[in-house]
Design a protein around this nucleic acid. Sequence first.
DNA 1: TCCAAAATTTAGCCTAGGCTAAGTATTGTC
DNA 2: GACAATACTTAGCCTAGGCTAAATTTTGGA
Lengths: 151, 151
Amino acid sequence: MRRALAERPLPSADDHAARFARQREADRTATAEDYVELIADLLREEGEARAVDLARRMGVSQATVTATIGRLQRDGLVETKPYRGLFLTEEGGRLAAAAKARHDLVVRFLLALGLDHETAEADAEGVEHHVSEKALKAFARFLADRETPGR
Amino acid sequence: MRRALAERPLPSADDHAARFARQREADRTATAEDYVELIADLLREEGEARAVDLARRMGVSQATVTATIGRLQRDGLVETKPYRGLFLTEEGGRLAAAAKARHDLVVRFLLALGLDHETAEADAEGVEHHVSEKALKAFARFLADRETPGR
DNA sequence: TCCAAAATTTAGCCTAGGCTAAGTATTGTC
DNA sequence: GACAATACTTAGCCTAGGCTAAATTTTGGA
């Protein structure tokens, strides 16, 4: 006998549409977050972030990176000094820091659930853009509870 | 003093690129999954799935739905009988069932973590397309453990 | 039956994000 | 100091997914 899952009726059309709209919004910002996060990582770990390295690490052509960086520049997140590398604006830096914090929290949470490292990292890449603040808080709470063995 | 998080070095460029490639792949299939899942829900709950209702529930224009349904038809997932509604092919039905199973599991998991119903549903909408089978298994394990209070 | 309302499609436009191929510019090394 | 290798940009193309406005069906009720 199947656990009664409160066979959910459909939400109102408006609520339903709002969920999808939030979804599309998240999709739109995901690329920007991935780029600034990677640029920040490269700056921190390698001392510089070159377009050619972004292309390699994102698995896209250099032409695609040029175009995407153009949009990020237009949006005030990134600055470029050709042949010198890419840099984050203040706003870009803030976005990267927030993205990294989210990313790391999701990874820690998935590891705590028992996932192997590579899967946790790979899944976090997708999940980090689609979880609400409330979910992130719940993840953090889970991790905190878990590190407090006694009650 | 910050918990030592094994300040992860960057993955190899190839591994990194593979993660992003998987990500882009998931993005490509997300729309199809959302549509067939919604069509299946409408067929089950309302007896029919009309393009106009999809437009309302997805929060997009009817023209967008026409175009998207065209792609789903081309891909063998959906059939249309104009003014009679939309139907799923066998493959479309399988995809919808898989998507719904994933969706429901994610919702149950998020509820178990303490999220309210609306947030769980909204977050699931995004998360369901980006979690691996391994993560889903971990979610299921968590739910199972939780329902077995004793050890 | 007729005809207005509702559903659907078409046309034409746009952006993001992919690609390849072919430039152009810079650097670093000999 | 020249020049090959490397980095970057440009041009031109493509698909998915959005939009509005304007047809075009089709349905259902008076």
